[in-house]
């Protein structure tokens, strides 16, 4: 076996489109944005807070007194992003800025489309550039622009009677480049070759598959590799009647905790080619592999386990057998 583990890296997207409810304060602000208007809220000390807070930052009082604020104001501070990131609201260079709108006492954070850094200056006047289509979202402000170059609005005001905003959809998707741990990479590389290889704890001698590079009970690293057989015993199981999202398996299907011969810990896998009503704790099963050409770095190389013609293992022996040391 090669000493160096293969480095397994893969991009993945972590994300969800969250369905947020706004409550009255955020809702009123977003409803105003949809109408291309700015609304701040009066704080306990009389200052107009922008964007409106639900609760006063000083005395924690619940706030409710809205105040109309202009859609133009002054840049209080800013930074120039010469190379925007993919997630950023602008594809070309832009400024993040703290902008104090006329009629507000606090600055709000948004972005400014100024074309060039030389056009940015603290104290400069900027005006909101409204999106062509507004929907009650913070991006209804399609950035701010220097007031001098702001165009007169050319969008058509809608006079449709719309419900106030009470909920919004917030897509939050981020890309990660995930690298598998050493033990996992070794294990998956072996799986790709059709082998089930676990690791033995140097301390308690128990064998783990999939191996995680450590024995969680002893808190020590595990390195010694142990090749295990295709045969396993059902430690327990459930018959699942609900579908797994994005998975072709149709319910009902059996998920079993399986202990491979020679291993001391179970893992979950599918059980098939069996009568669901005749699955038993202690039942003997073996792996059914996909065709070799479909093998990858994944446990899915094993399609499922199926029963074999061997007597059931007594319950008290399941997972207790120490493999040859």
């Amino acid at each position: 076996m090669s000493a160096a583990a293969e480095l397994l890296s893969q991009e993945f997207t972590l994300g969800y489109t969250y369905t947020r409810t706004t409550g009255p304060v955020v809702g009123e602000f977003l409803t105003a944005l949809r109408d291309r208007k700015m609304r701040g809220i009066k704080g306990s000390d009389g200052r107009v807070l922008m964007p409106p807070m639900e609760y006063d930052p000083v005395d924690a009082a619940a706030l409710s007194e809205f105040v109309d604020v202009a859609d133009c104001g002054e840049v209080v501070s800013w930074t120039w992003v010469s190379q925007p990131r993919k997630a950023h609201p602008s594809d070309s260079a832009f400024a993040w800025a703290l902008i104090k709108l006329d009629g507000a006492d606090t600055a709000m954070l948004h972005w400014v489309d100024a074309g060039d850094e030389s056009a940015m200056k603290t104290g400069m006047r900027v005006k909101a550039r409204w999106a062509n289509e507004t929907k009650g979202f913070i991006t209804d402000i399609n950035g701010f622009v220097p007031e001098a170059v702001a165009l007169v609005a050319d969008y058509v005001e809608s006079d449709a009677e719309l419900e106030p905003i009470s909920g919004i959809e917030c897509p939050s998707y981020m890309t990660y480049n995930f690298t598998a741990g050493k033990a996992t990479a070794r294990y998956l590389a072996q799986l790709r070759n059709g082998k089930l290889v676990g690791q033995r704890c140097p301390n308690c001698a128990n064998v783990y598959i999939p191996p995680r590079g450590s024995c969680a009970a002893c808190g020590v690293p595990t390195e010694e590799e142990v090749e295990l057989s295709n045969k396993a015993t059902v430690e327990s199981y459930t018959i699942v009647y609900i579908p797994i999202p994005n998975n072709p398996i149709k319910p009902p299907y059996v998920i079993a905790n399986l202990v491979l011969d020679g291993a001391n810990l179970s893992f979950l896998h599918l059980l098939s080619e069996c009568d669901n009503n005749n699955v038993r704790i202690g039942m003997r099963v073996e792996a059914v592999w996909k065709p070799k050409e479909e093998w990858g770095y994944a446990m899915e190389n094993i399609k499922y386990f199926k029963p074999i013609d061997e007597p059931d293992m007594p319950v008290e022996q399941i997972g207790k057998q120490k493999s040859g040391e």
């Binding site: 969250y18 990131r85 993040w96 979202f137 913070i138 919004i168 917030c170």
Partner: peptide, 14 residues
């Protein structure tokens, strides 16, 4: 803030 700032993806450096 999940309503006012997170949807703009204001990076921590800004």
């Amino acid at each position: 803030d999940p309503y006012y700032l997170a949807p703009l993806w204001v990076d921590s450096i800004a």
